[in-house]
Amino acid sequence: MIFHVSIAAVEPRRVAGVLAELWGGTAAPFPPVSDDGWIVFADDDRGSAIEVYPEGVVLREVDGDADAVGIKLPGIGLTSTHIAIATVLDHADVMRIALREGWPAKYRKRGGVFGVIELWIEGSVLVEVMTAEMQAEYRAGMSSANWLQMLASMRMAA
């Protein structure tokens, strides 16, 4: 189970607010890593959260008995990091939020198994948003057994 993840954003506060809206959760400042960091809580029973750091802030190990620290490097914009999140909103509501924010969004079917709304935060970070129907598809189709079966049908070993 994943309890929290972090993503980068040009406008961390704005991005955190939108993610909180999608989750029906809460956004708050997150100063441990950077002065402009934010955290979004899903307000669920698992403590699910997304930390939103300013673009260019990276985590770095610290020697000895100390927590990792955030340091600022030049931002690069795009990333392979992405997340899939559940939402209580429907498809139309998610698309309205994307339009309001000026962020690209479209419906996609992943491997013919489950649907997602590709929401491109600030046009550069992919968040796959799943409505209740999409979440049911995901739970029904996404498993190691199904994945291995697909690989076998493609004649690929795990």
Rank of each mutant, 00 (worst) to 15 (best):
S80C: 11
V88M: 00
F30C: 10
D45T: 15
L99I: 02
N146F: 05
M142D: 01
I39C: 05
F41A: 10
S143T: 05
G47W: 09
R108T: 13
A86D: 03
L73W: 00
I7W: 02
W103T: 08
H91P: 07
A136E: 14
I97V: 09
A145F: 11
R60V: 04
W23G: 00
L99N: 12
G75E: 05
D90F: 05
E11V: 12
A66T: 01
G102K: 08
E21A: 12
A86M: 03
Y53F: 15
L89E: 08
G112L: 03
G141K: 00
Q135T: 11
E122K: 00
L126I: 08
R108S: 12
A66I: 00
L119H: 05
A27K: 06
W147Q: 07
A9R: 06
S124F: 09
I85V: 15
V125L: 04
G111R: 12
V127G: 11
K109C: 13
Q135I: 08
E137W: 05
R108D: 15
S153F: 00
D63W: 02
E101M: 13
A16M: 10
G77P: 02
A28M: 10
G25R: 06
S48Q: 01
E137D: 07
D67G: 06
G37C: 07
L148N: 00
A49C: 12
T26V: 11
I50S: 02
V116N: 10
H91F: 12
Q135P: 10
A20C: 03
P54S: 10
T87G: 10
I97A: 07
A136C: 02
K72W: 06
G17A: 03
S34Y: 07
V94Q: 12
W38R: 02
A98Q: 07
G47N: 07
A49D: 10
I121A: 14
L19F: 08
A158K: 02
V127A: 15
V58P: 01
L22K: 12
R96Y: 04
M154C: 06
A136P: 07
D44K: 03
W103Y: 13
V18I: 14
V129E: 09
M154G: 04
V94Y: 15
V127H: 14
E118D: 15
F30R: 04
F114A: 14
A98H: 13
E21W: 04
V5L: 11
I117M: 13
G75I: 03
A8T: 11
V127M: 10
G141F: 00
A42R: 01
M154E: 12
A105K: 11
E51K: 10
